[in-house]
Design a protein around this nucleic acid. Structure first.
Lengths: 340, 340
DNA sequence: GTGAAAGCGCTAACAG
DNA sequence: CTGTTAGCGCTTTCAC
């Protein structure tokens, strides 16, 4: 067992000693800000290479009071919506020479809180958050007061007014429902996430609005607000299809419901008209192609990051809430006949 | 005597002053390591809450020489394979109270290098990397020597022996090709990424092996090694289907090729037997279900993170290379008749 | 139990 | 152009 000697990273003093110059001269060379005589410059550079010196960013940041790091807390990086958003934030951060600390709150407000505290303690300069449903607005406010600028994305936080980037959830769902109604459907089922989730209730409101626009009654039997799963999708479908007037179309409130529902529909070999909120890979390869209301997670991430950096740069204008449009992509599934 | 500018984070000295105790006592309370008399404890706690004090992690880390942060550099977080892997790494990091600095190298070795340097300078304790094809092994080695333990995932680095987590790429592709051969196919096309990509050449080798096992000749016209795109998928398919003996089956070397090919096949309304490397959402909803060779990105991430923390904890045993098995999931697309 | 003093590695301020 | 002297906010001796 050879225990390695603690290979201590060489410091600037080590370099200074090796090169026979002062600490400050090394600092000048490393930062390249001020000029140093060619002879010394060379000596220092040689020493740096020889020792394999790298500046300790922490010491520097401690001194300068800046960390060149931003944080991103969202529900789940493994979800395509968030992973695309993450990538967009990364790009902006990289442009600004900042690194990104990321973490998934997994829909758990306690975990979200812990993560945000942990990021705050690390002195991030700003934080982009998808605020978990149920997270304490007062906590976020105190955290923001403690130093890190915040931008909310995907969901707002009631009672705490900060820059926020949202999709037009209501308008999108309304548009999707209308596409089904325009194709002659009047019995349209809606599947959304638990209604405490902001996007879920907004989208349901869009569905209600479209139904009201067409003077169609809402049937509670056709409205499901629950966490998506293939099993529950199957149960609800079975229940609905056994109704005297079964639904002829489905409006799915999110990606995971769409996938669960399509899987369940396939299992019971049933075809109904379908529109889903959120685009997903292969939606165009299925037969018929699945019509979706597409958000632009990349644009949301980019915008949130840009807003954040504007604040970091000192912008003190009032907080703004930006709502991005969504796009109805017609691929055929919305126009399946009301009676198959 | 220094007047506090607005929004300055309170420090331990501020707390000490407010509570009328020494700095060290505050430190003791904050860390909870040593005992403090109840009276002072209370005074300090009150001061902490009153001032909204939070410990500056950077100062602490500077002093202790530890950052409680690990880095993750992969090709693209937006790719489901990597986003699932990321999530798994996050979980292990969280268990260990570490935060995660992530970034996408976007298949650009220069960018990868820049990111890794940037992470190294931030004093991360360890780094999990999907080494970009073409990245300099010497650079990685010097970076590792400079302090941060490394673990490679998904791809090895030739000439630099560190802990590595891989999938059984060769065995998986061989198994996939055999599934097609067993269904009577002899003209099997293979689509892989550019052959400088480790996983691509391994999988091609698996395809070659299966063909050799069955004493089938390789037809170069049926082997494509290129970056996936729907456009090129269409061109290659058109070319192949115009051959005297067109392929009756396709083995796709990765996720992106699978999607591009399925899209192109749908456009030209052609059905061939199909097996793809990497599982993907909705593979089971398509008709027929798409048979895949499934990797386990979550297990890969978890394993890589566990190996990394073992090293951080001081394990100095020789580097190991772990190969995870893959699973052939039969969903029907492999058994489409050789002549449609 | 408690506190004073000495740094961690770096940069800023101010001489020469 | 160069070096000296202070710190950044915290933990760590080592005294009391």
């Amino acid at each position: 067992m050879t225990t390695q000697p603690p290979r201590a990273r060489p410091t600037m003093s080590d370099v200074a000693a090796e090169a026979g110059v002062s600490l400050k001269t090394v600092s000048r060379v490393v930062n390249g800000t001020e000029s140093v005589s060619p002879a010394r410059l060379h000596r220092v550079q040689t020493a740096i290479e020889h020792l394999g010196f790298r500046r300790n960013e922490f010491a520097r940041q401690l001194r300068q009071g800046t960390t060149a790091t931003i944080g991103l807390v969202l529900e789940d990086v493994a979800d395509p919506f968030y992973s695309v958003l993450t990538r967009a934030v990364e790009e902006i951060a990289l442009q600004r020479n900042h690194m990104l600390l990321t973490s998934s709150a997994a829909e758990d407000p306690h975990r979200a809180r812990r993560l945000i505290e942990s990021l705050g303690a690390r002195g991030i300069e700003g934080l982009i958050v998808t605020p978990s449903t149920g997270i304490d607005a007062a906590f976020l406010e105190s955290e923001a007061a403690a130093g890190s600028t915040m931008v909310f994305v995907d969901r707002p936080v009631t009672g705490f007014d900060v820059d926020t980037v949202l999709s037009d959830n209501l308008g999108g769902a309304r548009q999707g429902a209308r596409a089904l109604i325009d194709n002659g459907h009047r019995r349209i089922a809606f599947f959304g996430d638990a209604d405490i989730v902001f996007t879920a209730s907004e989208r349901r409101a869009g569905y209600f609005a479209a139904m009201a626009d067409a003077r169609l009654a809402i049937d509670d039997d056709l409205v499901v607000m629950d966490t998506p799963s293939t099993a529950t999708a199957g149960l609800h479908l079975a229940r609905m299809l056994a109704l005297a007037e079964p639904p002829t179309a489905i409006l799915s409130g999110n990606n995971r419901w769409s996938i669960a529902l399509l899987r369940a529909l396939r299992e019971i070999e049933t075809v109904v008209a379908f529109v889903g909120f959120d685009d997903f890979e292969l939606a165009d390869v299925l037969k018929p192609g699945i019509t979706v209301i597409a958000q632009d997670p990349s644009a949301m991430g980019r915008l949130a990051a840009e807003m954040l950096f504007r604040r970091i740069d000192g912008d003190t204008s009032p907080p703004q809430r930006v709502q991005l449009g969504v796009t109805l992509i017609r691929r055929g599934s919305e126009s399946i006949a009301a009676r198959a």
